[in-house]
Every structure is written in C-alpha cells, then in structure tokens.
Design a protein around this nucleic acid. Structure first.
Length: 282
DNA sequence: TTAACTGTTGATAC
DNA sequence: AGTATCAACAGTTA
C-alpha cells in the first residue's frame, strides 16, 4: 500500500476537498470492500478527515465514522467534474472515465461532487464504525512513526529482546506504525544497517541512527507527496507523488548505493522483496 | 505458458 | 509469546 506518507498525503488532500460535504449516496460495487450500513452515512456531513497509521478516518457527527484502509492498491479519487485539487489536470485519462472496472465504492455528495474508491486487488476496505469501535481499532497500533510518542527509549525497549530481522520489526505496526516495505528499505540504507540484523543485536548508537533514519525518510516521503511506484498509489487528483524520484534503494537492484556506490542487492526477507547495499549496510 | 512478483496484514500453526 | 508461513486478490513481469 500506500504507507504512512502516502496515506498522510491523501488524507490532507481529501480533507481539503471533502470536509463539510454531505454524503448524498453511497454506491457499493464490491460488497467485500464495504462493511456496515450505507444508510447510516447517507445524509450525514463529514466533520473531519484524519489519519492514524495507514488508516484514514472520515468522522461524521453523532458517533459515526468511516475508516478506510487502502492496503496494497487502493486509491481515493475526487472528481468535481471540472476543476480538480490543486488546479492540476490528472495525468491519466482513466480519471475521466469513473467509475472504472476497479471502482469498488462511489460516494456522491449533495453538491454533485464524487469520491471514488478504486482498488484493483480488493484487499482494501471501508468500514462504518462508532467512536468506540474506532478507538478499539486504533488501540491495537503502536504510535505513528512521525509521532513524538516514538522516543528513543520507547523504540529501544521495543526492539531490545527480539530475534527477528530488524526490517521485519520496523514494519510491525505494534512496534512503530506506518512504516511499510519501501520506507523500511530506505531507512535501513540511510542508517547503514543490514535488514537481516537480529533486532536485539543493534547497539544503542545504531538504535538511535535507525530511529532517526525512519523519521527522516517518512518526513521526506510526506514532503514529496508519497511514492508512486507502479502507477498504483496516486493523489486524490490522480496525479503521482514524487518520492519515487528520490528512493534510496527500494526498486533499485543493481544501481549504485547512495552511500557508497556499490550495487544494490535484492533479497527476500520474511516474504517481502528487500533492497539493500551489502557493502555499507552491515 | 507458467511461475513468480507486487506497496498489507490477518489468521494459522508450531 | 515469538516466530514463520500462508491467504485474501488481480494484474504485471521474467
């Protein structure tokens, strides 16, 4: 999916265009993509759009919310017929032909604007929840990677006694929330730490360097509007992000390491494609 | 053609 | 508990 920076970008853009709008009609094309009763949200006004980890929250009045997880291939595309967010025009023609065959849920607002939830792989979801259910869902998560709650003592304690490879741990939402495969690979390269290292083997200096590196790449990802890698993740306008232009190692097998110039290697770790520099990431 | 790959994360089994 | 594997799905790439 979209990892924290991508979801943060979508959340900010969405907030700018759909806050205060009133849902007129929700059309569910794929029942698996929607959990809850459509009638609960029809006629309701969106009060706030926010994000926790990789989950987007649409908050309505009266104890009503929709949580959205984009998983691997979800997109939220806002269309108002003429102008689009940021005044830009979507690069892809498909934004002019919505709903598409990948549109799973469609919102129509009372002012005639529309929001499309497209999700090729159908892993993503939208769930209608009350405030308590939202709180329960969020309580399962560690603090967000870009939150001040992730302190060095917290991080060090979380990874101290674990034998799993460090990359696996920094992608664990119960350890630090929002870091996925792309930013995990890049953070480890920036910290010059091998993804294979058992978490407990990191020295205090390495723990500090890794946490700072995670915070750095996540912040850069947000600043760049997220990474559009295989045309999957896009902004609510259909436009691409820019982090893919500054990727350190992710997807760059054979290319020179930004630290030392040695060729980047790709391995499989815990079932996930993992890019790193075997020369300087030790 | 077939197999393996893909940005997530849950359920399951040891 | 901590860890490893697989499944959910559809499409692309080797």
């Amino acid at each position: 999916m979209p990892e924290l920076p991508e979801v943060e970008t979508v959340t900010r853009q969405l907030s700018a265009v759909i806050a205060d709008k009133i849902v007129q009609k929700v059309t569910v094309f794929k029942s698996k993509s929607w959990v809850g009763e459509v009638v609960k949200v029809e006629g309701q006004q969106i009060k706030e759009v926010s994000r926790r980890s990789k989950i987007i929250r649409l908050r309505f009045a009266d104890n009503l919310n929709i949580l959205i997880h984009l998983k691997m291939s979800g997109q939220l595309i806002f269309v108002d017929g003429q102008t689009r967010v940021g005044g830009g025009h979507p690069t892809a023609d498909w934004t002019n032909h919505l709903p598409s065959k990948h549109t799973r849920v469609m919102f129509k607002f009372t002012d005639g604007t529309q929001l499309f939830f497209n999700d090729q792989r159908i892993f993503g979801w939208m769930k209608v929840m009350n405030d308590e259910e939202v709180a329960q869902e969020f309580a399962l998560l560690a603090p967000d990677a870009n939150s001040s709650e992730i302190t060095l003592p917290y991080f060090a304690e979380k990874i101290a006694k674990r034998n799993v490879p460090i990359k696996q741990l920094i992608m664990d939402n119960q350890v630090i929330a929002g870091v996925g495969n792309i930013y995990a690979c890049d953070a480890l390269n920036l910290a010059r730490i091998s993804p294979l290292r058992p978490a407990a083997s990191l020295s205090p200096v390495e723990q500090k360097k890794l946490l700072e590196s995670i915070q750095t790449v996540i912040a850069l990802g947000i600043q760049k509007g997220g990474a559009t890698v295989h045309g999957k993740y896009v902004h609510v306008t259909g436009m691409s992000g820019h982090y893919q232009e500054v990727l350190r190692v992710y997807g760059r097998k054979g290319e020179p390491c930004p630290n030392c110039g040695a060729p980047i290697q790709k391995i499989k770790l815990a079932g996930r494609g993992t890019f790193f520099c075997p020369n300087c990431q030790v």
